[in-house]
């Protein structure tokens, strides 16, 4: 796998999650907590999608 995909996708996902959650809530703790949850769910989804595509193309 291209390393730049990870070095670019991870910070991008983190920033998008944090900024998005900051527009949803006001409390800093709630923003950070929901951003972490969203970040985890997004990574999980991306991993599943990647594995699925790997399986289909294999």
């Amino acid at each position: 796998m291209d390393l730049s995909l990870i070095t670019q996708a991870l910070p991008l996902t983190a920033i998008v999650c944090l900024v998005y959650c900051a527009t949803r809530f006001e409390l800093p703790e709630k923003i950070v907590r929901s951003a972490l949850v969203m970040f985890g769910k997004t990574l999980l989804f991306l991993c599943i999608a990647w594995l699925l595509l790997l399986w289909v193309s294999g």
């Binding site: 900024v19 998005y20 900051a22 527009t23 949803r24 809530f25 006001e26 409390l27 703790e29 709630k30």
Partner: peptide
């Protein structure tokens, strides 16, 4: 989305 938040407040509530 940030502009909208500045004008209308957080979309889901205080938290």
């Amino acid at each position: 989305m940030a502009i909208w938040d500045a004008a209308q407040g957080p979309a889901y509530g205080y938290g």
